[in-house]
Write a protein that binds this DNA or RNA. Structure first.
Lengths: 247, 247
DNA sequence: CGCTAATTTGACCTGGATCAACTACGGTGG
DNA sequence: CCACCGTAGTTGATCCAGGTCAAATTAGCG
């Protein structure tokens, strides 16, 4: 089932361009990367804590997430990923994984050998820079999550997360009109925000009842974007998008 | 006062080598970087949220920290930095700062122009890789802080932070014998862990009274390292140190 | 239609926040 | 050398955001 699919990596190119300009040469080189494409069921681990990675994963369609388990079944989710993301790009320079990467929904992913990526970045410093930049934005998002965890109450925290996930999708053309897919369960949201699923549920109820946001059937609908931004003190600057979200 | 000081960047080399092996050529090239060395008082901002950076900062002596303010005086600290660290290395590829970098104690720092660093990384891919790797470890530490914020109770959270700060110092020869400098106030610890200084104080009291750790006069003394590790489920793997902490 | 996972709700509890003193200590100026 | 002052640390009393536990209710889905 290994195959080269023309333009399979288009989502990756679109994602990189949402964050860094690319030359035509660079785009072509990315499209010529050897890829192994797979479609995985929901909630399937892709790489695990402790693995030694030899390839990177590009999400082509669907959602993925990174997480880690602690004792007594506690779980922390670090990030959610959409088409175009390379959630384990870091394994290129730190092959020993310190957390898990798994699908969230059914997802189509492409695997690219580290070797090919090392070769690509050696030939195209601009792509190396774009990749590095991508991992730095990843870190910027972690910092924003840290703020939310440490200093924002539950309502603002969730509101902030919704702004982020909407903006990220909007930047690659997967969202618009103040609505977007959001296929995670309330338990996932809880493990991402350090709350309880019960409390997530109550906060969502409050958001619904104050007419700000609804989350139903895997779809987020923002009824009052400006208010949501204001309530969560969201500033998209940390996402370092090329084309800033209009509002 | 701008000057080239021979071996001024030795702490940087030592730090990089704690995390990646370097060739003699690479070490020499780093030592030849043009640096502007300054000694700054405690609590002095180095670069600020919103600045466009044109240089990177190497900590040569003393401590620094990164943080961000929210409304109503809330503050979140993201990281603490010691000799050898380049806390704003990311500005090399994302010049627009999304947080503040400041000294914590009086500190001696070296500034290196982005230009020189771009030139260096172009000539030495191995150094580029080491730098990239360093920013990735930075991100790994953020993930660990996220876990602590989201899923660890206060005692374990602080214990984990102490393990991390001890290990990081131990790796570059700044700590040993289960004791190390820790010059932050209880308010700083609170803003790093998402707690209140009052609660930090009570947790420290508990740690003291159960004979695990004392923190007095800017010095951390770990009385029961194994217990501390166990209590906080600390696993130094995420620091990706070359010479793993013995215990 | 039946089974399982996800959401929702209620009752109650607690870790950590808040508020308000009070104490210890390293300067610093007289 | 000491009196004074500002910062940091300590403590007690009280409160509440969010956790815990348990039981419905609902939504998907084969």
């Amino acid at each position: 089932m290994a195959s080269k699919i023309p333009n399979a990596l288009l989502p990756l190119i679109r994602k990189l361009e949402s964050v860094t300009p690319l030359s035509q040469d660079a785009r072509d080189a990315i499209e010529r990367l050897p890829v192994r494409v797979r479609t995985l069921p929901a909630r399937r681990d892709i790489v695990r804590d402790g693995d030694l990675a030899t390839q990177c994963t590009v999400i082509l369609e669907g959602w993925a997430h990174r997480y880690k388990f602690l004792s007594e079944g506690r779980r922390q989710i670090f990030s959610f990923h959409i088409a175009g993301d390379i959630p384990d790009l870091q394994s290129l320079h730190i092959p020993l994984l310190d957390h898990n990467l798994a699908t969230l929904t059914q997802a189509t992913v492409a695997f690219i050998p580290h070797e090919s990526l090392h070769d690509l970045t050696a030939r195209f410093p601009s792509i190396a820079a774009a990749f590095w930049r991508d991992t730095l934005i990843d870190a910027a998002i972690f910092r924003e999550w840290l703020i939310a965890m440490g200093r924002r109450p539950a309502f603002e925290h969730l509101a902030h997360l919704f702004c982020e996930l909407y903006s990220k999708q909007e930047a690659v053309g997967l969202a618009g009109d103040h609505r977007c897919p959001l296929p995670m369960t309330q338990t996932d949201l809880a493990d991402a925000t350090g709350m309880t699923s019960v409390h997530v549920n109550r906060v969502l109820k409050e958001m619904r009842s104050c007419g700000m946001v609804t989350l139903h059937r895997q779809t987020l609908v923002v009824k009052a974007w400006d208010e949501l931004i204001r309530a969560s003190e969201f500033d998209a600057a940390y996402l370092h998008l090329q084309n800033r979200v209009a509002g």
